[in-house]
Every structure is written in C-alpha cells, then in structure tokens.
Amino acid sequence: MPKISLKGHNMPASPIRKLVPFAENAVQQGKSVYYLNIGQPDIKTPQVALDAIKQADIDVLAYSRSEGSETYRSKIAQYYDKNNISVNADEIVVTTGGSEALLFTFGSIMDAGDEVIIPEPFYANYNGFSTASGVNVVPVVSKIEDNFALPPIEDFEALITEKTKAILICNPGNPTGYLYSREEIEKLSKLVLKHDLFLIADEVYREFTYDGLEHHSVLDFPELKEHAIVIDSVSKRYSMCGARIGYLVSRNTAVIGTALKFAQARLSPPTLAQIAGEAALDTPDSYFDEVKEEYVHRRNLLIKELESIEGVKIGKPSGAFYCVTELPIKNAENFAQWLLESFDVDGETVMVAPAAGFYSTPEMGLNQIRIAYVLKEESLKKAVNIIKEGLKVYSD
C-alpha cells in the first residue's frame, strides 16, 4: 500500500474540531449542545457587506490580481491609516484567509528546518502551518498565573539559535485573550533588531480590546520597517469567517515580493469575497462599539460564573473573545469528550476546546480548556453551569 507522507503523518489534528463527531452523536441522541469550542461569532455580518454580494453586477466571475484587487488593497490601506498606521496598497497581499497569509509568510522567510519562537499557548493551527512549511515551532511558555503576559525577554533570547528566523505573536491573543502592552512590544522590537529576526504579529482581533486598553500594532514602530509582518483577516472583525479573506502586510519589499510569488502560484484570492471585504470597510464605528460592549458583557458574565466553580484558575482576557481556564481535573480532553458522550443537564450539554492542543510543549495545558464566549449571555450562563455540574460528578 502506498504510504502517507511524514509531513502528513505529523500534521496535528485540530483541538477545536476533533471532538465534532462526539458533538454530532450527542445531537443525534436528542441533546442540545452549546458550542464554546470555536471562534465563530454569532454577531451579524455587517449589512453593507451582505448587500454588496447581493447587488454585485457580474457576468463572469473572473480571477482577480494575485495580490488582490487594486481598489480593495487601496481601501485596506485607508483602513490602516484610519488606525494611525501608514501603509500603501503595494505593501499588502490579499490572501485566502489569515491562514494563507501566515503560510505565505512562513514560505517567504523560512526554509525547512528553520525555527519560529511562539509564546504558548498559541492558536492551534500555528502548529499545522509550521508542519506544512517544514518549520519548527520553538515554544516559550506563558503562565495562567501571570494572566498569560509576555514571558521574560530573557526566556526568548535563550531560545534563539542560528536557525531562528522569527518570533510570532497573536495580539490580542487566541486562545488567551491577552493584549500585549506597548512596553511588551518594545521589548520584542529591541530583541528582533538585536538578532536580525522578523516579528510576525497576528492582529486579526485588533478591534476587540476592553477595559480602556489600546491595541499596539507592530506596524506602529518605524524601527521595525524591515522586520514587521502583520497577519490580518476579515473573519472576526466583521463576523465574516466564511468569506475566507485575509491579508499580509509588510513594509519590507522583499517579503511582499516573495509573498506575491506564492500568491501567483495559487492564482488569486476569492473575487466575490473581496467584493464583500471591500464593502465591509464601510462598516460604521458604531458597529464595533456595540460588538465590543456585547463581548465585555459576555466576558464579565463568563468570569463571574467560572469563579463560582471551586478549584478553577482563569486567565482574564483583555481582548478577542477567548478565555483559558484551568480545571480541577487531570485531563481536559477526556472531560470534554465525557461531557458530550455521557453528561447533560436537562438534555443539554456543552462542547469546549481542550487547551493542550494550543501548546507545543508535551504535557502542557492538559487540565485547561479554551472557552470562546461567542454565545448570547443566557446560553453562556447555562453552558458554564453544565461544566460546573459535570465537574461535581466527573472522575478522571
């Protein structure tokens, strides 16, 4: 029998989706499932984007330019300018989701066997992207006791080798919701300049910051002109996960030129989705004000309900819409599967994401879960209660 590739064998399964069959079986058994496992917002997509698709006057749905349409990239540049970040259309490559932007970045700046340092826990698919690119993830641990703040710079520096090509952060973070301060970005800036590395920042949750805190982009730092690469997306910002539109942004002309070659190899990003993405940029600020207010309410409710569970530790998020919680159990994946297979409250159960899949270091995060607070408050309250009641009877 022909063999699967080593790369395919090593490709990790998604901790966000791996329990889906158990959730489907629960539904088939007549249970209702609250889905806290995936960052699919229930917020309505801006009407202006939906209308743009409905009203598109298209006879032939043709390819766009490989780097994305010129009008869309120009409008993205205006969006950044509105956020006090000066970039031009030629410094942007539109991609099929932020995922492709990261794949293009890895392919453009790293060879097989090179290393990228990432604070963990981190977005689980970074493991998949690195495997697909033949790149090695070198994790530096952030701790729930520190609310997942940036680890000491000395910890980063101790991991740098001749194979190190970049540091990757997610800001605000998935899965932790941690928002890096300007001082933390400055520390990373000095480090990458000292060692001539790239600083990649996944900033797809830029709009979702709370408690009066401000997001600081790596593009805010002029000294990082040749070093900063931003990964961005419409998915969370406009609740358009299905559009699959993202972009890579860098002032480094060699990075953009190289990424464009990868873009040409896959021909073009989705034309119809670009129309929706371009229209979404006309979304009024009031939309984000309302969305942020909703997420703050949900976060506060979630934290309050989790704190009522004996023995839990909580990383309080300052951005995005995720929360990592440590449970008084040994194995969160077993617990998550048990909730779907064997437990319910009045015919209802819950699906969470075991957090071990958000770590690269073995044995880390085994008793943690990630909760995506993307449900209405009443549903969120019921979901946490199911976890609470389940813990009372669950045995490792």
Results as ranks from 00 to 15, higher is better:
residue 1 M to W: 07
residue 5 S to N: 08
residue 7 K to W: 06
residue 17 R to C: 05
residue 18 K to F: 10
residue 20 V to S: 09
residue 21 P to N: 09
residue 26 A to C: 10
residue 27 V to A: 12
residue 31 K to L: 15
residue 32 S to R: 11
residue 34 Y to H: 15
residue 34 Y to L: 12
residue 36 L to P: 07
residue 42 D to E: 09
residue 45 T to H: 07
residue 46 P to V: 03
residue 46 P to H: 04
residue 53 I to E: 02
residue 57 D to K: 14
residue 57 D to V: 12
residue 60 V to Y: 15
residue 62 A to W: 08
residue 64 S to V: 06
residue 68 G to F: 04
residue 70 E to L: 15
residue 76 I to V: 15
residue 78 Q to C: 06
residue 94 V to P: 04
residue 95 T to G: 05
residue 101 A to S: 10
residue 103 L to T: 14
residue 107 G to K: 13
residue 108 S to T: 14
residue 113 G to E: 12
residue 114 D to T: 08
residue 116 V to F: 05
residue 120 E to T: 10
residue 128 G to T: 09
residue 129 F to G: 00
residue 129 F to S: 00
residue 133 S to Y: 00
residue 135 V to H: 02
residue 137 V to H: 05
residue 138 V to P: 03
residue 140 V to K: 00
residue 141 V to F: 05
residue 143 K to V: 07
residue 143 K to R: 11
residue 143 K to N: 13
residue 145 E to W: 03
residue 148 F to Y: 14
residue 149 A to H: 07
residue 158 A to C: 04
residue 160 I to K: 07
residue 174 N to V: 10
residue 174 N to W: 03
residue 176 T to I: 02
residue 181 S to V: 04
residue 183 E to G: 01
residue 186 E to M: 03
residue 190 K to R: 15
residue 197 L to I: 04
residue 202 D to T: 03
residue 204 V to F: 11
residue 204 V to M: 08
residue 207 E to I: 05
residue 209 T to L: 05
residue 214 E to M: 06
residue 214 E to C: 11
residue 215 H to N: 12
residue 215 H to M: 11
residue 217 S to D: 03
residue 226 E to Q: 12
residue 227 H to T: 01
residue 228 A to F: 03
residue 230 V to R: 00
residue 230 V to S: 07
residue 233 S to T: 14
residue 233 S to Y: 02
residue 238 Y to T: 08
residue 243 A to W: 03
residue 244 R to C: 07
residue 250 S to F: 06
residue 254 A to R: 10
residue 258 T to L: 06
residue 260 L to N: 04
residue 266 R to G: 06
residue 267 L to D: 08
residue 269 P to D: 01
residue 282 D to F: 13
residue 286 S to T: 14
residue 286 S to N: 12
residue 287 Y to H: 07
residue 289 D to W: 09
residue 291 V to G: 02
residue 294 E to Y: 14
residue 300 N to C: 09
residue 301 L to T: 07
residue 301 L to S: 06
residue 304 K to Q: 09
residue 315 G to L: 00
residue 319 G to P: 01
residue 326 E to D: 05
residue 336 A to M: 03
residue 337 Q to W: 02
residue 340 L to K: 02
residue 340 L to G: 00
residue 341 E to V: 04
residue 347 G to R: 05
residue 347 G to T: 02
residue 353 A to V: 09
residue 357 G to M: 10
residue 357 G to A: 14
residue 364 M to K: 12
residue 368 Q to Y: 11
residue 368 Q to A: 11
residue 373 Y to H: 10
residue 373 Y to A: 02
residue 374 V to D: 11
residue 375 L to V: 10
residue 384 V to A: 01
residue 395 S to A: 13
residue 395 S to Q: 14
